[in-house]
């Protein structure tokens, strides 16, 4: 019996010497350890072994069996490891190849600036109102204290459709529509397209403005300044200051031009601010009492301020765009950069 076992052991050892795949290993395993495999047959042969020798023989056969299982197990593991390695190698990719992306789109720079501005002012309690782009002379000029013979009408070259209808030259026109309907407290933003007969690198016949209006009791020029300070910090960065200087708009009195300290050079003077340390960003002022009166708001009781800025101008300043035309050409090389 021992001989048989030794022979079998040798046979198994020989058989698994050249096994390289889990399939053939399985075949061999079945051949020896399967139900009618050679080791199992040995077990069955126990019947012929004399009774007194059976326990001893059983131990020997079981030892062979566990030895064989152990051999197969070890081999199986090493083959599996090898096969996995092969699989890994076969499936390996060049991770530097480009990814399968859905390309990002982009927002128009005006949309980005507009959103940013609205979010700043919405936090201060402003709501958004959008008025018509084709306006009456009344809303665009007369109600804004700019009667027909007023020289300020020449400040903005107007596109006319008829003697009375025109393309609005300023979003201020929307102010009047709001003040006619709504009574104080009023805090509105009026963004939108406006039109002027002007066409060069810094002017476009169509551009966008954002107008702001506050009317309530006891509103002062200092309140305007306080709000603009906040605006400048949020839009242009902490540390950016504002400066008011006298100006003129028919619908505000006093009127101011608002400069922000240059966010590029910090006010030392650079190309962006033309060496002055300041950049002009918007016009503002205290709402002219005639404008309030015209809308049925008592200027003795209420006061207010208004401000207006060019959205493209802010966009050009913020992103360093040097030609306004780019904003309206729709060139994909330009557009794709403004991811928002």
């Amino acid at each position: 019996m021992q001989d048989k076992i030794d022979q079998l052991k040798k046979k198994i050892a020989d058989a698994i010497k050249d096994v390289h795949s889990s399939d053939s290993l399985f075949q061999i395993k079945m051949k020896y350890l399967g139900k009618s495999g050679e080791v199992s047959e040995l077990m069955k042969g126990m019947r012929d072994v004399p009774k007194e020798k059976r326990p001893e023989t059983g131990i020997i056969i079981n030892a062979l069996k566990s030895w064989a299982e152990d051999q197969f197990g070890k081999l199986d593991k090493s083959i599996k490891d090898r096969e996995l390695k092969k699989l890994y190698a076969a499936e390996a990719v060049d991770v530097t190849l480009p990814g399968n992306t859905c390309k990002n789109g982009a927002y128009h720079p005006n949309t980005l600036v507009r959103r940013e501005l609205i979010s700043v002012f919405a936090g201060m309690g402003f709501t958004v109102y959008e008025g018509p782009e084709i306006e009456n002379d009344y809303y665009n000029f007369t109600a804004l204290n700019t009667p027909a013979d007023h020289p300020a009408r020449d400040m903005q070259d107007t596109f006319y459709i008829t003697d009375n209808l025109l393309l609005r030259t300023q979003t201020s026109a929307g102010q009047i529509r709001v003040m006619e309907k709504q009574k104080p407290p009023i805090k509105i933003l009026s963004p939108g397209k406006v039109y002027r007969s002007d066409d060069d690198a810094t002017h476009s016949p169509m551009f966008s403005q954002m107008e702001g209006l506050v009317v309530d009791r006891g509103i002062t020029l200092c309140d305007l300044k306080g709000m603009l300070d906040e605006f400048a910090r949020k839009i242009f960065g902490n540390g950016v200051k504002t400066r008011l200087r006298p100006s003129y708009f028919p619908f505000t009195e006093p009127s101011v031009e608002v400069d922000v300290s240059c966010f590029e050079c910090g006010g030392k003077g650079c190309r962006l601010c033309k060496g002055t340390g300041w950049i002009e960003v918007l016009g503002a002022g205290m709402v002219n009492r005639r404008v309030l009166e015209g809308c049925g708001i008592d200027p003795e009781e209420y006061s207010g301020f208004a401000f207006g800025m060019g959205i493209e101008r802010i966009a050009m300043l913020k992103y360093g765009i040097n030609n306004m035309k780019l904003l309206f050409e729709g060139d994909t090389r330009f557009l794709k950069q403004f991811k928002g």
Binding site: I118, F121, A122, G123, M124, G125, F126, T127, V128, P185, K187, V214, D216, R217, G218, I219, T220, L221, C222, D223, K225, G226, M227, L228, D229, E230, R243, L244, R245, P246, V256
Partner: peptide, 23 residues
């Protein structure tokens, strides 16, 4: 104008700002 110091509408009523549903 340097005498104009920023204040924050101390006398104004609180208003609820933001976008309309359409916007």
């Amino acid at each position: 104008y340097e005498h104009v110091k920023g204040t924050f509408m101390p006398s104004a009523l609180i208003t609820n700002g933001g976008y309309s549903e359409e916007q």
